[in-house]
Design a protein around this nucleic acid. Sequence first.
RNA 1: GGGGGUGUAGCUCAGUUGGUUAGAGCGAUCGCCUGUCACGCGAUAGGUCGAGGGUUCGAGUCCCUUCACUCCCGCCA
Length: 594
Amino acid sequence: MNKYRTHNCNELRKKDIGSEISLSGWINKKRDHGNLLFIDLRDNYGITQCIIDKDNLSFSELEKTQLETVIKVIGKVVNRSNETINRDIETGEIEVSINKFIILGSCKELPMPIFSDQEYAEEIRLKYRYLDLRRKKIHENIILRSKVISFIRSEMNDLGFLEFQTPILTSSSPEGARDFLVPSRLNPGKFYALPQAPQQFKQLIMVSGFDKYFQIAPCFRDEDARADRSPGEFYQLDLEMSFVEQEDVFKVVERLLTNIFKKFSTKKLMFNAFPKISYSEALLKYGSDKPDLRNPLVINDITEIFSREDVTFEIFKKLIKTGSKVRCIVTKKTKDKPRSFFDNIDKWAKDQGASGLAYFTIEKEKEISAKGPVGKFFSKEAIKEIMNITQAEVGDSIFLACNKLKELEKITSLARDKIAQDLNLIDENIFAFCWVVDYPMFERDEQTNKIEFSHNPFSMPQGDIEKLNFEKPLDILAYQYDIVCNGVELSSGAIRNHVPELMYKLFSIAGYDKNQVNEKFSGMINALSYGAPPHGGIAPGIDRIIMLLANEKNIREITMFPMNQNAQDLMMNAPSEITENQLKELNLSLKLKK
RNA sequence: GGGGGUGUAGCUCAGUUGGUUAGAGCGAUCGCCUGUCACGCGAUAGGUCGAGGGUUCGAGUCCCUUCACUCCCGCCA
């Protein structure tokens, strides 16, 4: 028999009444009636109420024992009378009458209460993470995370994928995020980098003939944190498949995500088959390449309206002549919304750094007309034309913004979210997945004016390779795709370029000559010239999937031991200084900025 | 690198127009209480008001500097 317990704290039921048992766990809560003491004993599985009275020799000692002390209780399962049954806990029909108890782990005064739904400062939660993790909600989030990952493994195995580990110490790559670097002792002056993703390795696994690979892969990027982005490390379900086209990858991921979200959430999926939206369409209709499709609002371009004689909105007309565009959002049946609704949105837009959002409402008495601050600038024919483009009807309102394309996309995208929130248009009980496809291979950096890879440099360009027009690189699309859920980018992937000559060509457009490519991607580029299968894959973010399932906005709520925003582990005191000896061994010296 | 928010007891917070000895709930300690499940009742202890400087007869409160945490922008193929 186990020394510590015969049952866990969520096991005992009516059928156990009369049994002599032992339980071990934490004192979650005490209710002390002076001559009668109730103890809620908690473990990972649940809570069991234990009871002791003054006739017992241990009574006064147990009465003095601190919350969160770990004890072993030996006693008898007894019935609870009808009036004293607790329906809120699964063991609520019985209780344990304590005969004896033993302290297994004593507890100092707590820096934060465990039994409370109260929110606490992150600093203290992170410093005492092991206490924080005892609390119900985050404890359950972490268990959910474990179950989801375990489910993913079994699904991937069922689909014929093999799980492999790839190196954690690897080489720094020129593209992408800032690397975490590790100095090499045996190779003075040289550094390893932690992988930003196992990108090259997974392609090499395909070249090695393993056909289908996956890994719950740690990824390291030395970039600043956000609420939904840990500094340092995060996890991806990294997967790669040989002899596949885009659709084959989609099929696997759609099945997997559908199964995960159906199994681990009660929320409904908006689409059985995930819709596919091209990158350019997404930017036009939603102003973003990660649209929240729960939001029914759509953006329309109405720049052409402003070339009409009977539109006299001179500010916009002037801006358009210098290259700006006009886009708008229609809100249905908002004719009778108070003036404050419109002004708040305009004010909000100004707070976002935009020049505000113009608006008018379409009304009809005898004739169609536009009411609102800028309504007077539009003739009834112009209004009809706008209604034609935007599907707006009488009683609807139109919010307009005019700016250079990038800025315009940004503000209309934010406005789309903001207006939908104000009008309460977003159903929180839905997951709306979509694919964003047809990403451009290259984009122009606005500051440097240089042409760069817009996503992954290893992606395969679309179309007939022989006929690609390298003179117009910005027109080249890639077999590059993202999956988005509720406005959250879950992952991106691509069909890879497995043709070395084409790879050199594409890198040369981004400003890397053959030697640089050979040097920086030696493993990859070499491998591709020894018989590489066509292949492709994707890497859904595990953390973000769990956040969606757990309905958490902050990644630390689903991460066991996270760092704070300044990339410090307050519990372990990382990062920390190292000794002179360690530095010497690594041939390093410090030169700190003041 | 830049912008916003927060910082008062172990924890969560209140603190008016600058004015006496800075308060409450939870927790801790002590006492009372045999059916609670956020048990109840009474008492006690507990404060560098993040830190430093300034204005003032007087600063938790106003001003300046600075630190910590957090959210956002930049960044994140």
